[in-house]
């Protein structure tokens, strides 16, 4: 067990000395997951909202599909996006496979159903009086929709944070679409997988600790928004 203890001590040393590789990996992880979350939010929040407020043919099926996508394994998303981005794929000519852009795309597809479904739930759970109050105050349809969104903002933030935390900790998409290239597409999870395989525990433990700290911060934020929303 000494090697784990030794790895732990070395990890603390790497973090406190702001090791260059750790910094690069952490920054890339945060950058990729943040952009992917932002894109998924831009599509997922309006999609969830519209599905909640509009009645259309096949709505139940759309909700069922979104709910199913919640439990999709990240390697499967990786595989699907890979099939599009590979040289023979539909988007092969973009040439973005094994780049951070491919990782963003994959993570976005992973976060989208989470954000959409939670936004849908937040909208459905919104107080029914909001819409009528807005209408009675003279709001038009767009103003009413925006007001509902503002009133469920805390639940929406919680949806976004949940989406972020899901993709920040995933490994399948990043590995398959990023390729784990050092100083380019290597993020926290792929680095941990690689270093553990090599028996280099110090870097893995250091990155694991950073991940835990970030997860803790995310959960503090989530807890705050859930409390506000409740």
């Amino acid at each position: 067990m000494d090697y784990i203890f030794e790895g732990f001590i070395n990890a603390i040393g790497m973090i406190t000395s702001l090791d260059r590789e750790i910094l690069m990996i952490t920054i890339l992880s945060l950058k990729v997951s943040s952009i992917a979350t932002l894109l998924a939010t831009l599509i997922g929040v309006p999609a969830g909202f519209l599905i909640a407020v509009r009645d259309f043919h096949g709505k139940r099926w759309v909700v069922l599909v979104l709910n199913t996508l919640l439990s999709i394994p990240s390697v499967l998303v990786g595989l699907l996006v890979y099939s599009f981005l590979s040289r023979r794929g539909l988007l092969g000519n973009l040439g973005i496979l094994y780049t951070p852009y491919a990782m963003i795309m994959g993570q976005m597809f992973l976060a989208f159903p989470i954000i959409a479904v939670l936004s849908l739930s937040a909208t459905v759970g919104a107080d029914k009086r909001v819409e009528r109050t807005a209408m009675s105050l003279g709001a038009n349809r767009i103003q009413t929709a925006l007001l509902i969104l503002v009133e469920v903002r805390f639940a929406m933030f919680a949806a976004i944070i949940t989406g972020f935390s899901r993709i920040f900790s995933e490994v399948g998409v990043s590995m398959m679409l990023g390729g784990n290239i050092r100083d380019y597409t290597r993020n926290i999870t792929t680095a941990i997988a690689l270093e553990s395989g090599k028996g280099e525990f110090a870097l893995g433990i250091a990155l694991g600790m950073i991940m835990l700290i970030i997860a803790l911060l995310i959960n503090i934020l989530l807890n705050y928004f859930q409390g506000k929303g409740g």
Partner: peptide
């Protein structure tokens, strides 16, 4: 304008 029985305040 209408004030509901149990008014909703933003």
């Amino acid at each position: 304008g209408m004030v509901m029985q149990d008014p909703y305040l933003f």
